[in-house]
Simulated scan of single mutants.
Amino acid sequence: MAVDPDFLDHVRDLFSGLAPLRMGRMFSGVAVYTEDDVMFAMIAASGTIYMKTDATSQPAYLAAGATPFTYTKAASTQQITSLMSLPDTALDDPEEALSWARLSLPAARAAALEKRRTKARRRK
């Protein structure tokens, strides 16, 4: 199931303060990037927005009622705790959504840096 194009426009509006934004395919959803290759959010096919987290930012997401990204593989449920749902209160509030995005940026930048390093090692 693809992500609704109208919903993608809504997400662009929510995070427009981080412009420029770029969208790309990720699993059956869409990855949301800023700063060229910094993926700070993912939109699942279900329409749920998941934000990049780490040990520093995850407690704030949990306190706001966020849940980790989950998927089923070989009849078992897998959790990706580095992707937490955007709190419902931010879904229609660009200011709040932007605040959560900024909280996610350090984890997203660190993941992008590690990905760049891995690619550089493979090239050698």
Results as ranks from 00 to 15, higher is better:
67 T>W: 08
86 L>N: 00
67 T>K: 10
72 T>A: 13
94 P>V: 02
79 Q>W: 13
104 S>W: 01
98 L>G: 07
95 E>W: 02
103 L>P: 07
58 Q>M: 13
102 R>I: 06
83 L>T: 04
61 Y>V: 00
65 G>Q: 08
98 L>F: 09
56 T>C: 00
42 M>F: 15
65 G>N: 02
35 E>S: 07
55 A>G: 15
63 A>I: 02
51 M>T: 00
67 T>H: 10
82 S>V: 10
62 L>P: 03
100 W>C: 00
102 R>Y: 01
110 A>S: 12
88 D>F: 08
39 M>K: 04
81 T>R: 15
58 Q>S: 12
48 T>C: 09
100 W>H: 03
37 D>C: 02
85 S>A: 14
80 I>F: 14
72 T>Y: 12
83 L>H: 08
107 A>H: 03
40 F>M: 02
99 S>E: 10
84 M>S: 07
69 F>R: 06
63 A>Y: 01
51 M>I: 05
69 F>G: 01
36 D>V: 05
105 L>H: 03
45 A>K: 12
110 A>K: 10
45 A>F: 01
68 P>F: 04
85 S>P: 11
37 D>M: 00
48 T>F: 00
62 L>D: 05
108 A>H: 03
105 L>D: 06
47 G>H: 09
84 M>D: 03
71 Y>M: 12
67 T>F: 11
62 L>A: 12
74 A>I: 07
73 K>Q: 15
61 Y>M: 09
106 P>K: 01
101 A>V: 08
52 K>N: 05
97 A>L: 09
68 P>S: 13
89 T>K: 12
58 Q>G: 07
89 T>R: 11
94 P>E: 04
79 Q>Y: 11
52 K>R: 15
88 D>N: 08
96 E>A: 14
36 D>N: 14
102 R>Q: 10
58 Q>N: 11
105 L>N: 09
73 K>F: 14
47 G>R: 06
109 R>T: 00
100 W>T: 05
96 E>F: 01
61 Y>D: 02
56 T>Y: 06
44 A>L: 00
81 T>Y: 14
34 T>L: 00
84 M>V: 06
88 D>V: 10
70 T>C: 15
57 S>A: 14
66 A>H: 05
35 E>M: 02
101 A>K: 00
48 T>G: 06
35 E>Y: 02
68 P>V: 07
96 E>S: 09
49 I>K: 04
81 T>Q: 13
37 D>F: 04
77 T>W: 05
38 V>C: 02
92 D>N: 14
91 L>W: 05
96 E>W: 04
61 Y>S: 03
62 L>Y: 09
96 E>N: 12
85 S>L: 11
40 F>E: 07
66 A>C: 08
92 D>R: 15
58 Q>L: 10
110 A>D: 07
73 K>M: 14
78 Q>F: 09
40 F>K: 00
60 A>M: 08
110 A>R: 07
78 Q>H: 13
53 T>R: 06
86 L>H: 02
63 A>T: 08
40 F>Q: 05
71 Y>W: 15
70 T>K: 11
91 L>H: 09
36 D>R: 13
110 A>I: 06
79 Q>N: 15
34 T>I: 03
84 M>G: 02
77 T>I: 15
94 P>K: 00
82 S>R: 12
103 L>S: 15
95 E>D: 13
104 S>C: 14
36 D>L: 10
